[in-house]
Design a protein around this nucleic acid. Sequence first.
DNA 1: CGCAGTTGAATTGTGCACAACTAAATTGCG
DNA 2: CGCAATTTAGTTGTGCACAATTCAACTGCG
Lengths: 152, 152
Amino acid sequence: MAVDAATPRLDEQVCFALHAASRAVTALYRPLLDDLGLTYPQYLVMLDLWEHGDRGVKELGKALSLDSGTLSPLLKRLEKAGLVRRERRGDDERSVRVTLTGDGDRLRDKAVPLPGLVGDAMGLDAAQLDELRVTLNRLTDSVTRYRTGLGS
Amino acid sequence: MAVDAATPRLDEQVCFALHAASRAVTALYRPLLDDLGLTYPQYLVMLDLWEHGDRGVKELGKALSLDSGTLSPLLKRLEKAGLVRRERRGDDERSVRVTLTGDGDRLRDKAVPLPGLVGDAMGLDAAQLDELRVTLNRLTDSVTRYRTGLGS
DNA sequence: CGCAGTTGAATTGTGCACAACTAAATTGCG
DNA sequence: CGCAATTTAGTTGTGCACAATTCAACTGCG
């Protein structure tokens, strides 16, 4: 074999395929989310709030794997847009509770059709999408465990 | 069915699984790439240069799906780190040729083991990784075509 | 009670992603 | 040739990702 046989090739890297796919999907969402006045990460936060209604910053961070350095300014922008309220909890002044406003709650209706549209554009059938999601979640779990110490 | 049956659920979204997986893999690379003095996007650029040796900014952008707004400052940082040279072409002064320096070329050896390490951490066997890569590339193509006009 | 240690959010700083715009070089057409 | 249209990088501005730090609020232990 040639000496450079081991040189990593860009188009063979799963990591690059992952990176590219993620950016492509975000780019597909962008014009749709523009109509709702949201960015993609803001949309993920709203999805969580629509589902759970009432969250601490810490809880959001855990659900989305984001830290306060990302969430704090993002939540301030959502607050400025009138979609959420942020208030210190009475029982623990350290923690901030994030709540949907009326506008934030109503925005949900406009968001309902998005996943269907995006799913269609992916060019995979329901079974393939399901399998992909399962595989990606396994990969994320595995990588995260690996990364956070435990070797397996 | 309940009125909220259609509310998109975060953990059912393929887009979120993609986003989370991509960030988890980048986070796994980070400490490894720190040893090479590279960030993950810089590593992708170096992969392309190790493979092709000599590239215009435009070519890099096409290969990595990045525009000059991202690449220009990134390439300047690589130049400052002594890994690449940037020079205007003689025959077309608009275009900038990016070349590896000796240090940039030598760094390749240190990068060879990375994909193997990361592949292991993903917890999937070779066949699953291969299938995942193919599926992601199909998805990216499909989404990109959809996004850039042609409906199919 | 008092204080060390922990926890939760925010801030700061670096770098990427991308849209919108600028500016220079080149191409091609009348 | 002369100029409009195109091509190529770079710049500016906004927002996300994340490390490192700060600070206040809380907890628990002596």
